Each structure stands twice: as structure tokens, then as C-alpha cells.
Simulated assay, not measured.
Amino acid sequence: MPTSKTGNPWTVLLSKPVYENPWISVTEHDVLNPAGKPGIYGVVHMKHVATGILPIDETGHTLLVGQYRFALKAYSWEIPEGGGKMGVDPLESAQRELAEETGLTARQWHALATLHLSNSVTDEVAYGFLAWDLEEGIAAPEETEELQIRRVPFAEAFAMAMDGRITDAMAVTLILKARLMAQAGALPKEVARFLKG
């Protein structure tokens, strides 16, 4: 029976910074690949952690955030998402992000997932939360965000994630995971009843 190999099979010969801005840095590594052959490996280092929030209101609706994504050259419907400072509790960053994008605050929070996004080229870590027992306030999006907010039944958001109208990785993951956790009895009953389908 083969032995499981979980160690690092790459050898880094030289690393050189290529580009940096306030959000990312790019480093190119001269490497020997797992077969021992020379090559290069570019890594994008994210200077912030990502957070995503699936808010559920008292009628079983969620809020989707629509915005044009510059890198994709396409419009995207997502859950409220954003970045948090390294070293700050991801929940604190998620609470701030939910308030900024939607004006909502939540009295109840549940961690849904820790994710690595695009892990072949970036070290980005994302933290996803379910939020409920909501209170409305005034949104204050950043100047780089031109947002539309849609309030939809959770069942519709689930359908959008399943049929490809939502393609954002964190949104799809959190919507589907919330449904599965609710069906498995792994979420508080007061919110799970809206998510089971």
C-alpha cells in the first residue's frame, strides 16, 4: 500500500518580489518541481483575509449584493463580502463588512466555513458566517463599491447558486453549506427552519 505524502515536494532556489500594492504582493519563485525539474512558481500574497456573510432575516430572506467585478469584466451577484485586517478576529471584520455593505447588524452569528480561494496561485484565506436576528441600519459602502442590494428568499438564492446565476465561490459554498448543515441538524432551529428546503 502506498505511503501518504503530505510534505512539501517543492524546492525553492530563489524568491524575488515582482509587484506590490496595499492589497497584494506577487513573488516569483525559481523552483525544482516535485519531479526535480526546474521551473517558476508565481504566488499572489493577500494582505487581508476575506470574509463572507449569509444573512437570514425573520422571514427567511437573504440579501444578495450585486456589483461589477473589474477582474472578471462581468457583473456578479454575491453575498456580502469583503476584506479584514490580518490579526483582527474574522468575525469582527465580517460584522463590519455586513454593516458597511447592507446596513445590517446581527445579534446571532455562526461560523460556516474556512476556505482557501484559488489555492494554486494565492494564499488567500476566507472565513464565512451565517448571521441572523438582524437589525436594519444605514449602509456605508466604500468608494470603490457601486452596489445593488436584492432581498430574496433563501430558496431563490439556493436556486441561483445551483443554476449558475451566482458563481462567486464563497457565496456558492456558504449557501450550499448552510442548506446541508440545516438539513443535518447542525444549526440552531430558529434559523435552520428557513434553510432546509
Rank of each mutant, 00 (worst) to 15 (best):
E190K: 02
V88Q: 13
F194K: 03
P55V: 06
P2S: 10
E145I: 02
P188Q: 11
V26A: 08
G52Y: 01
E124V: 14
T102P: 02
S25H: 01
R151N: 09
A155T: 10
F154C: 06
T114Y: 06
F70W: 11
M160G: 06
I56G: 01
A74M: 12
L115W: 03
H45W: 08
E81W: 06
G42L: 14
P188A: 10
K37H: 06
G60S: 05
L32V: 08
L13E: 13
S118M: 13
N21G: 07
E135M: 12
M170A: 11
N119Q: 10
H29K: 12
L117E: 10
V44Q: 06
P153R: 04
P9M: 10
P38S: 13
R96H: 11
D163P: 01
I175Q: 02
L134N: 02
S76K: 02
V125A: 09
A161R: 00
A131P: 05
L112T: 04
W10T: 10
E124D: 10
E146Y: 06
N33R: 09
E101G: 01
T122V: 12
Q67P: 00
D133A: 11
G128A: 10
E124Y: 06
I79F: 14
K196Y: 00
E92S: 14
L91H: 04
L64C: 05
F194L: 11
S76I: 02
A106D: 01
I166M: 07
A157L: 08
G52K: 00
F129C: 06
L91R: 03
L147C: 05
V172F: 01
P80G: 05
P90F: 03
A74H: 08
M162N: 15
S76Q: 14
E135D: 11
G39I: 07
L54S: 04
P22Y: 04
P2G: 04
P22T: 05
T62P: 08
Y19R: 13
V152Y: 07
E100H: 10
M1Y: 06
V44D: 05
T6E: 13
T122Q: 15
V65N: 00
H29V: 07
L91E: 04
T11H: 13
V125H: 09
V49K: 05
T6L: 14
A113L: 07
V43Y: 01
A106G: 01
K196I: 14
T59Y: 11
R150Y: 08
P38Q: 08
W23I: 12
V18E: 14
T6M: 12
P9C: 10
K47R: 09
A35F: 09
A161Y: 02
K16M: 13
P55F: 02
L134H: 00
D57R: 01
G164I: 03
T114N: 12
G42Q: 15
G84N: 04
